[in-house]
Nucleic acid binder design. Structure first.
Lengths: 141, 141
DNA sequence: CACTTAATTAGGAATTATTATTATTAATAG
DNA sequence: CTATTAATAATAATAATTCCTAATTAAGTG
C-alpha cells in the first residue's frame, strides 16, 4: 500500500489536478481496510467536505481504477473499492457479506489445502470455501 | 441436471402452482448450457407466450433460487442464471465475457496446477487464471 | 363439472446504482 | 495576477431490478 503523498505527486506528475475532493477520496481509501461502496465513500468524504457530489466520487474512482491505484469488485450488483492493488483475492462471506482480502502467501496455503480436500470455489455470486468467516463465525463447507 | 417433469412435480408437491410461465422458464433453463440474463430468458419465453412479463421472470427465478433449482451469478452488475446446481465454478473470461462452468473433477486438476504454479484467483470483478478462453482464445496469465 | 379462493400474473410505477450532460468553479501555467 | 481548461456540482438520463395492484387462473372441494 502506497502513501498518500506518493500517490498525490504521481497524479500531479501525470498532469492531473490535485483537488481537495481527490485527496480526501484517496486518503480515505488508503486509510481503510474495508471495501466501501461509492455511496459509503461519499458519506465519509462529505463529513469534511459537505458539498462534494456523488458523481465526483464516481469520476475520481474511475480515474484511480484507470491508473490501477484502486481495485473494483462487485457485490450484489454494487461496486466496491479498495486500494490494495497487489495480487490478492477477495472473499465474500455468503452468510454475512463480510469481504476479506487474502494475499498471495496465504493463498498458496489455501490452494494447497483446496487441492488436497477437493473443495470448490464459485466465482462471482455466492462462493463456497472450506473455512469460516472471521466476522460472523459461520462455517463454510 | 434434473428433468423438467421431476422439477415440476417437486414444485407441485410443495404446494406451488404450475403455470405455463413457470414451466416455460424452467424448461428453457434446463435446455440451455448458457448463463442467460433475466432479459434474455424473457425474450426466449416470449416466443411461446408473448404476454409473459419481465417481473414474472424475476419472481420465478427468485422462487427457483430459493428452492436451489437454479444458481445465480453476477456479471458486470447483471444477474445471470443457470440450472446446474451441482458443485462447480463459473469462469468468466476477462477478455470476451464468455462464461464457462467447470465441474468438480476438472476443478481438482486446476487446483493442483494452481497450487504448483502459485497463480492466483480474484473472486468477483475480474479474475485471473492461467489458461485461455475456449471462446475467444485469449490467454490469461 | 362448476365453484371458490388464494396464488400468480401483467403492466406499469418506483427504486437503486451508475453514467451523461452542462453550466460553473478553481487548479495550474505563464 | 490572469487566462486556460480540467474538474466540479447539480441534475437528468439510463439500466437492472423490485414493488404495487387489479385482474386472472390453477387446483382443491362439493
Amino acid at each position: 500500500m502506497q502513501q498518500l503523498e506518493e500517490l498525490v505527486s504521481s497524479l500531479r506528475e501525470e498532469g492531473f489536478r490535485i483537488t481537495p475532493q481527490r485527496v480526501a477520496i484517496v486518503d480515505y481509501l488508503l486509510r481503510t481496510d474495508d471495501h466501501p461502496s461509492a455511496e459509503h465513500i461519499h458519506r465519509i468524504v462529505q463529513k469534511k467536505y459537505p458539498m462534494v457530489s456523488l458523481s465526483t466520487i464516481y469520476k475520481t474512482l474511475d480515474l484511480l481504477k484507470e491508473k490501477k491505484l484502486v481495485n473494483e469488485i462487485e457485490v450484489d450488483g454494487e461496486a466496491r473499492f479498495d486500494a490494495h492493488t497487489h495480487a490478492h483475492i477477495n472473499l465474500v462471506c455468503i452468510n454475512c457479506g463480510k469481504i476479506d482480502d487474502i494475499d498471495e502467501e496465504s493463498l498458496n496455503e489455501i490452494q494447497n489445502r483446496a487441492a488436497k480436500k477437493s473443495k470448490y470455489l464459485i466465482l462471482k455470486g455466492s462462493f463456497e470455501l472450506f473455512g469460516y468467516c472471521v466476522n460472523c463465525k459461520s462455517k463454510f463447507s
